[in-house]
Design a protein around this nucleic acid. Sequence first.
DNA 1: TGTCAAGTTTAGAATAATTACAAATTGTGG
DNA 2: CCACAATTTGTAATTATTCTAAACTTGACA
Lengths: 139, 139
Amino acid sequence: MNEQRPYSKVLDRLRGAGLRPTRQRLALAKLLFEGGDRHLTAEMLHDEARAAGVGVSLATVYNTLHQFQDAGLLREIVVDAGRSYFDTNMLTHHHFFCEDTGDLVDIPADQVQINALPEPPAGKTIDRVDVVVHVRARG
Amino acid sequence: MNEQRPYSKVLDRLRGAGLRPTRQRLALAKLLFEGGDRHLTAEMLHDEARAAGVGVSLATVYNTLHQFQDAGLLREIVVDAGRSYFDTNMLTHHHFFCEDTGDLVDIPADQVQINALPEPPAGKTIDRVDVVVHVRARG
DNA sequence: TGTCAAGTTTAGAATAATTACAAATTGTGG
DNA sequence: CCACAATTTGTAATTATTCTAAACTTGACA
């Protein structure tokens, strides 16, 4: 439907976040937000961009991911030591993490019910609750 | 009570895990297991060891932490990108993670109740469920 | 107790992910 | 279209961790 204005949605999205719609940001936003819910590392996104013929440096991919995160368009997930995934699904939800393959799979929020939470330490407020269900190939 | 055999407990612990009780492993085990529940990075443990006058290289600290983990004496916790904590509390429990300070605080298992969990992806079994409650200084 | 093989430790090099930097480029309001 | 600030970039730097091969311990056994 958007054949003639393929960037209009992401463009609005960037504008809404107060980010200048540069060529690089538009291309990365398109890759990130027009493919459903995704879990990507900086390296993976960089490869995708190059494969799509988009000239963008790895440094810019990192910058952009962090800017998108600060703007609330993405969230960072840390499951694997020394590797950050960025999740394009901003709705409350949780994750399966497969220790064999490194795969990350969404769990809709309504499939996990937490019905007791402790008081946070003095002077702190709860920001969010992350549930990671570690799984492995059945042995 | 153990003034005369200060290493006997950790010694048994290493023996039980099938690990040779070397000077380094004994010293690190003492630091790790005789101070209650602890959350330490390799670097932190290395510093403690040096402060205690124990000559041990950082490489050995890493090796030892992983061996202890494989032996079921420790578990690794990943909350902060690019930094691994090791937790000496092997009972089921969860964590507060303070984003401002990087502090990690235990939440006893009975203070979090999860009463719905999804089916794991085909062919996988659930290994464990990690709940991390992200908190920050009240604004 | 001395010897030896296997298990450990170590310093330093290597790797991997990420961040920092300063120069070059680009986007935008006037 | 200009000027200037924001952005991008290649590269170097940083950080956490793993690797490696040589040196050193340990424990078993004669």
